[in-house]
């Protein structure tokens, strides 16, 4: 395995609201190497976006990182000053968002916004910046480039806006791209185009990608590794094959089981996960899934399970799996 580009250790993020402290991210750790696409899956409130925002200090108050480290290329990003982060953001790490309409500036042309992203970080002449912008637009599959450079975001379709956001994000050739639900607001046919584009660009540039989504289909399509988040914690982490073919956490299994699928024969009934998502203001004392879990034991209500390693690539936070894996270890040691 190549050296980690990004190393997040025991990251904790809380929102200090009038109603109390919301532990949006409650201690998560993962690594990401270059040339790798990591999918972070979870439902709303699972902390998946908050976690990504804290990497580039985009958290808005009352949100605050209260513990842990985020190392990028050996440097702790949490110690970066505002000025330093400003130079870093958009240069080494870029981000694309769910809704391109709210992220593009409506009163500047596409060309202005592209060249701005470049001139902020590189000392280039305006002519060079323009040439590079045009190249970038062509690279993300936009036709009629000269005309598009002069257009405003509202004149473009949703799919085209998302392509432009990607062009802006990648114009400085970042080493890490954070994609926060980039296809959720798009139609499936456009989503297929954008996923294809991200995959292609990733292969060409060798950058690392963090792909945040709630759609397991998209994850299967694009990600090498997957972290499943629930209630501000990582429930299970592994390669795409680990997660889809041998899911270990009851939440992952429940999600996969609950979805109707096009590639399967129709079932009479869906098998849902019971109950409602975690109330982050009053989370359960033990495992966040415990009130909804069919396999909940006494210990699950009291204590949050620590990480259990199932294989070199696969780990899970679940008391049941811990017990099961414990036996497995004894057996392998005996042999």
């Amino acid at each position: 395995m190549s050296k980690a580009l990004l190393k997040v250790s025991d990251l904790r993020v809380s929102f200090f609201t009038p109603a109390g402290e919301v532990k949006a991210v409650g201690g998560i750790s993962y690594e990401l190497s270059e040339n790798e696409i990591l999918g972070i899956v979870g439902e709303s409130g699972s902390g998946k976006s908050v976690e990504a925002y804290s990497i580039i200090q985009l958290l808005q108050p009352p949100g605050r990182v209260i513990g842990g480290t985020i190392e990028f290329d050996g440097e702790n990003l949490l110690e970066y000053s505002k000025t330093r982060m400003r130079q870093f953001r958009g240069d080494k790490v870029s981000m694309i968002f769910q809704n391109p309409m709210t992220c593009l500036n409506p009163v500047y042309t596409v060309g202005d916004q592209l060249t701005e992203a470049l001139t902020c970080h590189r000392s280039v002449s305006s002519a060079d910046a323009r040439t590079r912008s045009i190249e970038m637009l062509e690279r993300v599959g936009i036709n009629n480039v000269e005309k598009r450079m002069k257009q405003y975001p509202h004149e473009l379709s949703g799919g085209m806006r998302q392509r432009i956001m990607i062009a802006i994000a990648l114009i400085c050739s970042p080493r890490l791209l954070i994609a926060d639900e980039p296809t959720t607001a798009l139609d499936v046919t456009i989503q297929a185009q954008i996923l294809e584009l991200i995959k292609e660009l990733q292969k060409d540039t060798g950058m690392a990608v963090i792909f945040i989504t709630h759609n397991l289909g998209v994850v299967a399509e694009i990600c090498d590794r997957v972290a499943v988040m629930y209630g501000g914690k990582i429930a299970e982490q592994g390669t795409a094959d680990d997660i889809f073919y041998s899911p270990a956490h009851p939440y992952t299994r429940g999600l996969l089981r609950s979805m109707p699928r096009l590639d399967e024969v129709r079932r009479d009934r869906l098998i849902p996960i019971k109950g409602s998502p975690v109330d982050m203001l009053n989370p359960p004392a033990g495992c966040p899934l415990s009130p909804r879990c069919d396999e909940c034991m006494k210990i699950c209500l009291r204590a949050d399970p620590s990480k259990t390693k199932l294989s070199a690539t696969h780990n899970v936070h679940c008391w049941n799996q811990r017990a099961a894996a414990g036996e497995k270890y004894v057996m392998t040691e005996a042999r």
């Binding site: 499936v188 046919t189 989503q191 297929a192 996923l195 759609n215 397991l216 289909g217 998209v218 994850v219 299967a220 399509e221 795409a240 094959d241 889809f244 996969l256 979805m259 699928r261 096009l262 590639d263």
Partner: peptide, 12 residues
């Protein structure tokens, strides 16, 4: 139909 991502890495 072909645009819909299938939650199965090998099939996809």
């Amino acid at each position: 139909l072909s645009a819909i991502p299938i939650p199965d890495p090998r099939k996809s």
